[in-house]
Design a protein around this nucleic acid. Sequence first.
DNA 1: AATGCGATTCTCT
DNA 2: GAGAATCGCATTT
Length: 239
Amino acid sequence: MGINGRNIQGLFLSENQKRLTREFFLTDALELSRRLIGKIMVHETPLGEVRGIITETEAYMGVEDKGSHTYGGRRTERTEPMFHIGGTSYVYFIYGMYNCVNVTAGVDGIPMASLIRMVEPADEASRSIMERFRIEDMQRRRAAREKRKAESAGDSGKSAAVVEKIPASLKKHLADGPGKLCIAMHITKADNDIDMAESRKFYLTEGIEVEESRILTGKRIGIDYAEEAADYLWRFTLI
DNA sequence: AATGCGATTCTCT
DNA sequence: GAGAATCGCATTT
């Protein structure tokens, strides 16, 4: 079983740590999304370097894609990084709570990107760090909830319950969603608009060999408003 | 395992 | 002022 509950063969074996350079990103988002499967996202965090093997991505093809933030050429403060050169990070905030990370595709001025939806820890040290960030986040959330509850009840100074044991569900679903992987890898707005082809703190490397037959396609998630584009098979998953 | 629901704040109109 | 490229928890199967 992989950490996210699926069987990923060869996951901790034969990793290639060579960094991905500019030319890798100079293609369209569909091609980039396929090529990113099996690659490793590396992030320098307060707890050390975290490395995640990318196992699911989605393509956002830009101005003609009704599912994309840049549909119709929408260029705002938020979407600006999507217009930057291939290999740029695009971190956006969603549902009042979560960050999601994309890697842009293509030349400067063409707003395409690949949403990173799932990673597996690439080594034991990374797994341990991911668990710590997830637990920390869980504690923060619970503390905030307790505080609100206490305030509405007129109480004050109530302490939150400490999470002592790691819930099995957390280990199984460590980074198997775009919001969760950002928590697990400590990716925040501070990591927005970074050139991942150049950065020493946030970048990508070659990872594991992936046969084409191990990549499944599916519909993109959470874009019900995108009409016909909601049905495009622009999600790529490693099996 | 599957389903339903509330959370919480940024962004753009 | 509305809605969002989602998640965790509770409840039920």
